[in-house]
Design a protein around this nucleic acid. Structure first.
Length: 346
DNA sequence: GTTGGTAG
DNA sequence: CTACCAACG
């Protein structure tokens, strides 16, 4: 879910075009995107797409088509996988697992009653990563020539580390947690940009880019204070204080400077926020568990291997897969010809 | 989420 | 060419 600071950062939002990302390397939070595929990529009744052995394939569909789109635009993705979750996250993880199980139970009931829309709604809420999906995603990335990095712990922390080392141009995730981990820049909504018109007005889900310096300047606080603000609202590592949202948290942090001072002035908050927990969560964000032990190996794009994997093993339509690979290769050829032309004429 | 066919 | 919608595995 991530820390809820949408309202606080919205004023600093920029909306780049996909062309701005050409030839840029991007660190993508793999689990974040994986979840984002599992809810919507389903049949009408809410069941997942699956191979002939009954294993879900929605993750492969999502990543395959999304990656083709990125490569077509000459974007260089690097996926970052989560490692071992922090001990502090255990409660959050357990709570979410429970909510998903509950949703899946309701989905089953709805399916039995023939309530298709209900079934779909609850199935989406019950979406969860299955064990087999992660090695399958990695295999897909290898076949598409896309490197990936294993984070020691949080993927977002490692992605932030890659940006701050200038190994990538930006971190990509729907969550703002990257900022708590100190990422210089964050990109959201990296999907195909489609316009829809309602009563003559154009609406689209635009890409959003933010930079940490801009956010901090706008809010008038430091990075450490942003972390405290997050802790007051609640993060994946602590529940936050009931009744304290983004506006209030910002006011507290600006007025009192730190959580210690907030608690000093409002002692009744202390029971919701023990200082030993605060210090542990601060450490998660300010001294993140990251590694320099990675390499971003770019392999060749392997069309035959992709067809073998997706179509032969995972029941994808050969026509659809081949078609998309063909248009990608056509686009890349066109792009390289254009850059050669402009080189020769300059 | 993305594709691709169909209707306007 | 756009809008809409079923299908995708």
């Amino acid at each position: 879910m991530g820390v809820k600071i949408t309202e606080l950062v919205s004023a600093t939002r920029r909306t780049p075009s996909i062309m701005d990302l050409a030839n840029k390397r991007l660190a993508i939070d793999a689990f974040n995107w994986l979840y984002s595929f599992l809810a919507p990529i389903r049949l009408t009744d809410g069941s997942m797409l699956q191979d002939d052995q009954g294993l879900a394939t929605s993750h492969l569909s999502g990543f395959f088509f999304r990656n083709i789109y990125l490569l077509e635009n000459r974007i260089k993705p690097v996926y970052v996988f989560d490692g071992k979750p922090s001990e502090l996250k255990r409660e959050t993880v357990a709570k979410r697992a429970e909510a998903r199980q509950e949703a899946n139970k309701r989905a089953e009931e709805a399916k039995e009653e023939g309530a298709v829309e209900e079934a779909r709604k609850y199935s989406e809420a019950g979406a969860h990563i299955e064990k087999h999906m992660i090695p399958e995603c990695k295999r897909l990335f290898e076949l598409m020539g896309i490197p990936y990095v294993e984070a020691p712990s949080e993927g977002e922390a490692q992605a932030a580390h890659l940006v701050n080392k200038n190994d990538v141009y930006t971190a990509v995730s729907q969550d703002y947690d990257c900022f708590l981990f100190g990422a210089r820049s964050l990109l959201r909504n990296l999907t195909q940009q489609k316009v829809r018109r309602i009563q003559g007005k154009e609406y689209r889900i635009e890409m959003e880019s933010y930079d940490l310096q801009g956010v901090l300047k706008h809010l008038g606080i430091s990075h450490a204070q942003l972390v405290d603000l997050g802790i007051l609202i609640g993060t994946d590592f602590n529940p936050g204080i009931k009744g304290v949202g983004q506006k209030t948290a910002l006011r507290y942090v600006k007025e009192y400077g730190s959580i210690e001072n907030v608690i000093d002035k409002k002692p009744d908050l202390a029971q919701h926020l023990p200082m030993d927990l605060v210090d542990r969560v601060r450490k998660v964000f300010l001294e993140p568990d990251v590694t320099d032990d990675y390499e971003m190996v770019e392999r060749p794009f392997d069309p035959e291997g992709l067809v073998e994997f997706l179509c032969k093993e995972k029941s994808f339509s050969e026509e659809r897969v081949n078609k998309r690979i063909a248009t990608l290769q056509r686009e890349l050829k066109k792009a390289s010809q254009q850059s050669l032309d402009s080189f020769l004429s300059s």
